[in-house]
Every structure is written in C-alpha cells, then in structure tokens.
Design a protein around this nucleic acid. Sequence first.
DNA 1: CGCACGATTTGCT
DNA 2: GCAAATCGTGCGA
Length: 208
Amino acid sequence: MDPRRALAGHAPDVAVLLLGATVTSTAGGERVALRLTEVEAYGGVGEDPGSHAHRGRTTRNAAMFGPPGHAYVYFTYGMHWCLNVVTEDAGQAGAVLLRAGEVVAGLDVARDRRPAAARDRDLARGPARLAAALAVTGVLDGIDLLATDGPLALSLPTVPASDVVVTARTGVGGAGASTSWRFHLDGEPTVSPYRPARPRRLPASGSG
DNA sequence: CGCACGATTTGCT
DNA sequence: GCAAATCGTGCGA
C-alpha cells in the first residue's frame, strides 16, 4: 500500500499503523534510527480539546493542516522539542506524537546526545527525549518524512504490529484526557511511564 | 503590549 | 513524590 495514503487516515488509526515503524535521522550529521514503541494521536479543529489544532490554524500548528506524512515539530516548556507525523489529507488537521522508541542504529551517537540517560532504554523514552536522540529541532517542522533523501525518513512496518495496548493520553487535561488515543507495544521496556494529566485549577474560584 | 501556560524532563528528598 | 527550569505561542486589551 502507498504509505502516503495510509498516513492520510484518521489520527488514531494512523497511530496504530506507526507502531513498529522505523524513523531514521541524519539530522545533526550522524545517523540514528528508532523503532517506534509508543505513539499518541491528536485530532482536528473542534474535534479534540487536547490538540494544538483544536482552536484552528495558527502559525505554530500550520504543519498539522498540511499534507500527511510530513513532520509537525513544536517547542514546549521553554526547552523541549517534540516530533509528530501529520495525518489526514491537506486542509484537515491531525497528527501522531512520537512518544517513545527503541534505538536500532547509531547507539553511540544517541548516547552522546542523551547524557542524562542512565540506560539505553531511556534514550528515546518520552517525546522530548525521542526528539533529542534524533537531533530533531524546529528547523525540521513541515518536512516530508516519506522523502528518502531528507534529514528524517519514516518507513512503515511491512507487517502490522500485534500486541498493541491502548490507554488514556498523557499530559492532557479536561475533556481530552478521556480520549484513549495513546498506543504502545505490549511488553516494551522503552515505553514511557504513564503519568496522569496534571490537575487544572478551576477558572472560577467561586464559592468555596 | 502584557500575561498565563504548556502533548516534559530532571534532580533532589 | 514534587517542584524547578525556561520561553514561544496565543489571546485579550
């Protein structure tokens, strides 16, 4: 099947397809490859309160509205980058956040980029760690992940992953938390530890 | 123009 | 287990 067409589906469906896929990075001058073990889906305008695209197109989330199979890279908490694969046809928003992976090539390079990692399983365990291991930064926002000559290349697994586990999303509060759009491979040591969404203070302090 | 906050990680207790 | 680190983005005025 044409990978571009496969990625044009609804984000949660595409998320499952991405488990077991390989992401190869030559950004930063050296090669590191990952096998994806954990992903999380985000929806479009008005569909998903936890999504960056929920309130419509902005400068930051523009890539989410672009063609499928491209990268959406954003910066958060003043220090971290996160990498997404854009889903849905152009004009419609959707993305899959790459949350964790197993390093399958360039182990020494990944260790160098992630000095804080105590073990190899921690090298790409968590979305910002994954981005760091692959040397992903904002300059890669919007690039085509299906191009073989670019700094990032995505190749879908030939056989769909079995042993897929579905859970609620991490770090998403409000109504979005109830959406079970987080997927990971069962028994994978590289899967990031589940952390419930940070409780939000009520907007109106009111009676009390 | 100013303010509040975030799809997180790390280090210390 | 908890709080700090750190700044671009989005939105209101």
